[in-house]
């Protein structure tokens, strides 16, 4: 089997993969990074979003072999080494932007990308950006609110709690 090498969460990672091995399979089964989830097989739910070379992609819709040499960041690589959560992660907790937690890794990865591209997104821009991330628990209210809060916007007027 061919070998693939990449940098994952700042550390070199390599392993043998089949042609058909998806990046998400390499991350979960090969590297034990089970924070990246698989919620569908049609590239829509976004539970598997990771960053490849700084950009969000669906890890279930890219082969591991295609990430050869790439820099990959997964949900496990977002908090600081000492465990301090990022402002986005922090805001998701503060504003109850997650319930079952299954879609959460993808949501956080998308939100991190959004704020990199657009540091102060409007409500509409956030909702639009999350088109590829499905959550069944939260009704999105607190996810959108959390992302606005993480971007430094005042969310006190958005319905309490």
């Amino acid at each position: 089997m061919p070998k693939v090498s990449m940098t994952v969460n700042g550390k070199p990672a390599s392993g043998e993969v089949e042609g058909r091995t998806l990046l998400v399979e390499f991350l979960r089964d090969g590297l034990g990074l089970t924070g990246t989830h698989v919620g569908c097989d049609t590239s829509q739910c976004g539970a598997c979003v990771v960053h490849v070379d700084g950009k969000p992609v669906k890890a279930c819709t890219i082969f591991a072999a295609e990430a050869e040499g790439a820099t990959v960041t997964t949900i496990e690589g977002i908090a600081a080494e000492d465990g301090t959560m990022s402002p986005v992660q922090e805001a998701f907790q503060t504003h109850h932007g997650l319930q079952c937690g299954f879609c959460t890794p993808g949501m956080v990865m998308s939100a991190e990308s959004l704020l990199k591209e657009n540091p102060t997104p409007s409500e509409a821009e956030i909702r639009d950006y999350l088109e590829g991330n499905i959550c069944r628990c939260t009704g999105y209210h607190n996810i959108v609110k959390a992302i606005m809060a993480a971007s430094g916007q005042d969310v006190s007027k958005i319905a309490a709690e």
């Binding site: 976004g46 669906k58 819709t61 998308s110 950006y129 088109e131 590829g132």
Partner: peptide
């Protein structure tokens, strides 16, 4: 087209 992650691939 698609969503941001899809548009990156």
């Amino acid at each position: 087209i698609g969503d941001p992650a899809v548009r990156n691939r």
